[in-house]
């Protein structure tokens, strides 16, 4: 009996020992990336509601709300497979600075030259039922009557809008062809270094001006409500697909 307990104890210790090895080996040779996202309109910091900005069409627009999903964040170095964050779904909200910082841990050491991401939520998550975290429907970026996540949205106002409270609203979503709003993009990095047990900083802009700019200039007096997955939504999604821009990176 005693003999058995002894063996059992030894096995338990052995397993704990192995866990410890696994734990430390996982920690080895990996660092952290802290991504900071700065909401802007062209080059200037975005101030919600109280500040007018001139869009490409030449109208003064006020932005009251700006949110988007930044997902599937990946880093790539020359001659190696990409490192991608697991369960990578982040709701970025211009009103909530906490959401503007994303921390990714356990990235293999090395020099990375490319950062790729999705704007919007992939189709698999759109059909996966009740989710939590940033994908919780409670966050309001969700359509219940026509199931699916809103990829990105701005609500604003402009004198040129002959609408209630001069408001315009763009809720862009949809995951089914031909109105799939998911947009993939990437940014070239200037030798971003991930160093073991250190934190590297990557600063990005999220530029609202891009929504109104290219390829299709948006005239908010004519286009002021896009709230369904349709052709117009695809135009908006194409417009904002390049709204994420490189600001700077700080190597440790």
């Amino acid at each position: 009996m005693n003999f058995r307990i002894n063996i059992a104890n030894r096995i338990v210790f052995f397993i704990l020992f192995l866990f410890a090895i696994e734990f430390f080996s996982a920690q080895n040779n990996s660092g952290t990336l802290k991504i900071k996202i700065h909401p802007v309109f062209n080059q200037t910091q975005l101030i919600l509601s109280d500040h007018g900005y001139i869009n490409t069409h030449g109208d003064s627009v006020y932005i009251d709300d700006f949110k988007f999903y930044l997902c599937k964040l990946c880093l790539k170095k020359e001659g190696a497979n990409s490192f991608c964050e697991v369960e990578s779904y982040h709701l970025v909200d211009a009103e909530d600075s906490v959401t503007q910082t994303i921390v990714i841990k356990n990235i293999p050491e090395g020099t990375y030259s490319n950062f790729s991401f999705n704007i919007g939520v992939d189709s698999l998550k759109n059909v996966s039922g009740a989710l939590t975290g940033d994908l919780d429907p409670i966050k309001g970026m969700y359509w219940a009557w026509n199931t699916g996540y809103i990829a990105a949205r701005i609500i604003g106002h402009s004198k040129v809008c002959k609408t209630l409270h001069n408001e315009f609203e763009f809720h862009i979503g949809g995951y089914l062809s031909p109105y799939n709003s998911l947009r993939k993009n990437s940014i070239k990095l200037d030798d971003l270094k991930i160093v073991s047990s250190k934190t590297t900083v990557l600063e990005l802009y999220a530029d609202v001006a891009e929504w109104f700019k290219t390829p299709v200039t948006i005239d908010v007096s004519k286009t002021n409500s896009v709230v369904l997955p349709n052709k117009q939504a695809m135009i908006m999604a194409n417009n904002y697909s390049d709204m994420i821009k490189f600001k700077k990176s700080i190597n440790p």
Binding site: G129, A130, P137, A144, N146
Partner: peptide, 8 residues
């Protein structure tokens, strides 16, 4: 048929 999953 606007809803794609029992849970939601």
């Amino acid at each position: 048929g606007g809803v794609n999953n029992l849970e939601v």
